[in-house]
Design a protein around this nucleic acid. Structure first.
Lengths: 233, 233
DNA sequence: CGGACTTTTGAAGTAATTCAAGGGGAGTGG
DNA sequence: CCACTCCCCTTGAATTACTTCAAAAGTCCG
């Protein structure tokens, strides 16, 4: 029964979507459940990529740090998404540190098992191509934003993206469904928490957003979109 | 004979590496040769991704532009590399504009053909996973650099990367093997041509590099590495 | 040798960071 | 239930790294 549940879930993940039940059963048989508590570290930056994960439930954050401790948030991961993609192709080491934000449930395989599975079921390999292609695409867009936009636009784009990815409709607007501090936003938008704080204060006054301690609610997504796109002249 | 040559070349490309000769012959049979002159545009940003390319010889540049004309150089592509990865999985549209820098020779397939090929030969799909994974990885590193480093370090990292990717040993040092203007460097490092010019002038005085009109030669890679890594305190 | 790019360099301006201090909420422990 | 503590957030003021503006000097190519 638990098995059955997992098969349904597996069949809806981005990597195993579209596979026949027999394949799902096979991959399920070699999986290991891995529960995490909030704050647990799943993999550390530069660790060898020996394990591949699929997120059953919960939320994780991927960060990359510099030698002197500054860090950048590369991505948030939610249920159905993969973690530890480097294990799919024998890459060098994990590009970042992955930390659980909530209680999180994962399925885990070792790198060789998953690689063999991709070779056996082309659909899974094609899913992997699509996942990595679209993540690559996202990064290109973020890189361009970081290069060409001013801070206010970048913060706006960051919030819009988070709202789309993890937004929850509420009475007051679209709320980002996990705790998000000023510091977190700064590490996504490439700025400082001070600038984020000042910017959000301004938007709050204009009624564009609503925010509090580690909480952001988008009240007027359209206005935020204008801020994000508006080129200054 | 021409066919034979192409099979050898195909077998050495990042996407078709490791495939049996029969598979290579099959993929060659459905390929179309596509020659480009310097300056030709292969695909335009946001165009639907209908075609997939492998570079036989030459060099291309991938840029992404904003609505108001600012642009960023996402990547340079050389022989053996793929272009138009979006066609591999039916992604939305090309993330950037791809322009030939030299006379360039490509092989082209339409998206459905290449997708079927990946499904038929898992090794090719796994190669694609590795290619996209490593490009994704590169972008994560660049994003982190752009977020946390100051301009001088970013320019140093950019030049070191280019020297590694397209460096040619010469008597005076490692020369970047294609024309590279201050503007180009600025669009890779996220700054302006003025700042690049000033920075290179300084390095030239110190004997770290040698440069001229659209030319950069790294004389002292170690010194450049120190500049790139040195955190300011 | 003319003309179009590319590069250089100075000077002024500014967006955003850094420095600094204080305030407020949420949770904990007495 | 109140007080204490730890984060997180806010806001001013000073600083600065970098851009923008401006002009001139190279350099390559036809």
């Amino acid at each position: 029964m638990d098995r059955q549940l997992d098969l349904d879930i597996l069949g809806r993940t981005e990597i195993f979507r579209g596979l026949p039940a027999s394949a799902l059963a096979e991959i399920r048989a070699s999986a290991v459940r891995r529960p995490l508590a909030a704050g647990d570290v799943l993999v550390r930056q530069d660790d060898p990529a020996t394990t591949f994960f699929v997120i059953v439930s919960g939320r994780l954050r991927v960060t990359q740090a510099t030698a002197d401790g500054q860090q950048v948030i590369l991505r948030y991961l939610g249920s159905g998404e993969i973690a530890g993609y480097t294990a799919l192709y024998g890459g060098n080491g994990h590009p970042g540190t992955i930390t659980a934000l909530d209680v999180t449930e994962l399925l885990a395989w070792n790198a060789t098992t998953i690689a063999e599975f991709l070779a056996k079921y082309p659909k899974a390999a094609l899913n992997a191509v699509a996942i990595l292609g679209s993540r690559y695409h996202d990064m290109q867009v973020r890189l361009r934003e970081l290069s060409t936009e001013r801070v206010e636009q970048r913060i706006a784009h960051t919030i819009l993206r988070l709202a789309e990815q993890a937004g929850r409709r509420t009475a007051r607007g679209v709320e980002i469904a996990f705790p998000l501090s000023r510091q977190d936003l700064a590490e996504m938008a490439g700025t400082t928490l001070h600038t984020v704080s000042r910017t959000l204060s301004g938007w709050e006054e204009q009624g564009v957003i609503d925010s509090g301690r580690r909480r952001v609610i988008v009240r007027d997504a359209r206005a935020l979109g204008v801020i994000a796109e508006d080129e200054v002249e």
